[in-house]
Design a binder for these strands. Structure first.
Lengths: 223, 223
DNA sequence: AAAAGTCAGTTGTTTTTACAACAACAATTA
DNA sequence: TAATTGTTGTTGTAAAAACAACTGACTTTT
């Protein structure tokens, strides 16, 4: 497992924990390293999940399969990436998703109870780990809430304005750059790219805003 | 503050904590009770937030105001309801939302740092509190992720199928009831009610599913 | 029992969006 | 430099969605 220490350290769950402590901590957590070959199922839909996973090598997909068998990839997790934290913490009884190895992979599994239960030897790292976990989920929460805010708007225009407005406010200026190209923005807002481009054009004509590539400028009134 | 103990106890943050302990705990947390008159601002957009709030009486709105001043109500928090937990935990520097008293209200504010920092007297409740917080955020996380999964679909049909499919899988049966009426479902999926009703009709005609009021039955193939 | 209210489905119309195809331009690579 | 690839904007068309208005079934209130 030692050879993966670098990867593990990059995982936000272990932020602030030194290499020398890591070994003790992992033992204390009874973390277990598992190998999967391409196509293997790490977590299975419908089953309960009690562990969080960290990809050490290879990669896994978080996928969802609907009633009719249509499969959607929800996430692509790469080395040092975390998965299953929300469900194992929330105590989900039937996983609504599956986790599948997309190539030969190694994964570190940690029983969630172990993370939140102080060990008999009262190792001081649990607290740090729990706080890391808290922060990870809080950030994801904020992210999802913001995105939801944009996506729940009915029209493309409203989605765009909601998103651009939020960017402007976060930066505290009406001139700003966005971290997406058009296709990425369209995917983020769940709309068609060309329709979105079109809507941007219209808004520019109407004097609501101006832009060039990923530089935007929001305008109050028409001036 | 004692008169609000019942309300506080109903807050998921204090789950598992007895009334007799509550008093000690609140003191340890330096929880402060604040009064607001209708229209007062509890948290202000653009400012950092370091506390979580619990509504004791009255009620607050979490609102978002965009660049052009259009206001949206994101949440309506009633007594025993929690707000600000994700942002105060994530360390958001500029709050993207405001919290406003919709009537004369009392609110309990707790500094987030106090929650996550073990007090000198090593009161044992912090751990419980932190775990409650973890679980609250994890559940919200799961909820948001699932909803996002449905809403990011482009067409009304896809949104419906994604949602209904998830319900069926969660219950482990193709016949189930949903906890929404049509208008609520339409709001949840961010689509127009009549258009949604229409789409449901079409799908029933096509033999994909059948329904009556809020009882649904998903069907494999046409049979 | 009548009246009012709620809820779901239906229809027709208008508006919006997706989709497809292409042109202009920029950036990258050979 | 030429060729290739990627990105953005534009246009036309077809499909989908929103919107508005109305019906009928069922509930609750008076």
């Amino acid at each position: 497992m030692e050879k993966h220490f670098e990867i593990i350290n990059q995982c936000p769950l272990f932020r602030g924990i030194t290499d020398s402590d890591l070994s003790t901590l992992l033992k204390c957590l009874s973390a277990s390293e598992r190998r999967y070959v391409k196509g293997d199922i790490v977590f299975m839909t419908g089953e309960p999940v009690t562990s969080v996973g960290i990809v050490l090598s290879g990669g896994v997909h978080v996928v969802q399969e609907d009633f009719w068998g249509n499969r959607t990839i929800l996430a692509n997790v790469r080395p040092s990436g975390l998965f299953g934290e929300a469900h194992s913490c929330a105590g989900t009884e039937k996983l609504p998703i599956s986790v599948i190895a997309v190539e030969n992979s190694t994964v570190l599994l940690i029983d969630f109870k172990r993370i939140i239960t102080s060990c008999p030897s009262a190792c001081s790292f649990h607290t740090g780990l729990i706080l890391n976990m808290l922060r990870i989920m809080a950030k994801k929460n904020v992210f999802l809430t913001q995105k939801m805010e944009h996506i729940t708007r009915k029209s493309t225009r409203e989605k765009l304005l909601s998103y651009l407005s939020a960017e402007a406010q976060e930066r505290g200026t009406s001139k700003f750059e966005i971290p997406f190209n058009r296709q990425e923005l369209a995917d983020y807002l769940a709309v068609d790219r060309s329709a979105m481009s079109n809507e941007l054009s219209k808004m520019q004509n109407e004097g609501l805003l101006s832009y060039e590539r990923n530089r935007f400028n929001l305008k109050l009134e028409e001036n």
